[in-house]
Amino acid sequence: MNILFSLAAGLVFGLGLIVSGMANPAKVLDFLDLAGMWDPSLAWVMGGAIAVAFGAFALAKKRTSSLLGLPMQLPTARGIDRRLVGGSLAFGFGWGLAGICPGPAIVLVGAGVAQGLIFVGAMLAGMSLVEFLRRGR
């Protein structure tokens, strides 16, 4: 059952990325280009998503299990460290270079965009590298 809901959530999430314009890298770069012809559209994506999800997370925080009886797995990390900030800064650097973040990258692959495949390949390599270094310690 939870597999079915995962599929549905991924599907709705992906449709949201397409409808919102997040799946178009050119639009993402125009949003990040404050000094050029600025397209502020994508601020509405984050605003709309947070507004809708806010109540759900407030409810989720009070529960120990999900509606399907699965454990409620909210992040427990609290510390703000160099890994968090350094990693996020590096992510933003890559995001600003191509205008692609992980969700839209996968949608691009689904849409049959060749550049999406190249990006996802490199992204998986980067993620594997971090995983490899973690295991080595």
Partner: peptide, 11 residues
């Protein structure tokens, strides 16, 4: 960009 996004989001 893909490499940076992969490494950055995991860290």
């Amino acid at each position: 960009a893909g490499l940076l996004v992969g490494i950055g989001t995991r860290y």
